[in-house]
Amino acid sequence: MVSTLTRNREESSPSSPPRPRRRRALRRYGGVVPYLAFLLIFLLIPAFSVLIGAFESNDGKPTLSNLRVALSGPYLHSFVASFELSIGSTIIAVIVGFIAALAVAATRGRPRALVQSSSSVLANTGGVPLAFAFIATLGNFGIVTKILSSMGIHLYAHGFSLYSVIGLIIVYQYFLIPVMILVMLGPIQNIRSAWVEAARSLGASKVRFWWSVGLPILSPAILSGTVVIFADAFAAYATAEALTSGTLPLVPIQIGNLISGNVAAGQGNLGNALGLGMIVVVALAATVYVLSQRRASRWLR
């Protein structure tokens, strides 16, 4: 598929001497060098530094002590809290997002386009405005809190707090559900009528259709959605920080604290160890995502 004209220019010049191989390779790959260099400097080297630093003690000697500390005590607790937050958020977002996507996909025209663009916006919303919007809603003086109080349901008296894992799970839905909707909208719309009609004509009820045909076909997309949402929830920092100012024990927050020096000095490599932990979790999620995408595209040819 490479342009034959450009190829011909490179290779077929009988009169001129053959170009040195290095020159030709440069002509071919030259264009991607800036891109690769950029990724190297701003992504790969920092990631590498975190990786190495996790196994280095403060005087540069190889050690596992960072990892040990990172996976014990308060830090272990933050991993647990992060997982709780992520898993809880994911379960809700996947289910609600899927149902919402079904409803949206079945809608025609303008409302559907509106939802699509709003979902794009919401999925990319920085966490800060969101945090404050929810303070106004479910905070101590939030409107919903007040309305529920007047109905006799005193949220904060029963131990609920917006500034907790549960609270964050609710707030996170605001940008996680749109992600699920965006992921599922395409695949749901790609369900062929022929499949639905074939299934019905073979005797399947509507429920049976979803169970035997619809959901299985959508399962790769559902899996990708789940994975993306999990990674998103796990890595989210801004919202939690804006709401709790670093007091809630979550892994990203802990790292942030270490960076801004809110914790005792001399623990730089501990941060790297925590960072390594995050990379591993999110990288695993990304791998599952890529694999499930490939499987999905095979079917829907």
Partner: peptide, 9 residues
């Protein structure tokens, strides 16, 4: 795959 916090780190 690399959260922004880790990037800063």
């Amino acid at each position: 795959g690399v959260p922004s916090v880790v990037v800063v780190l």
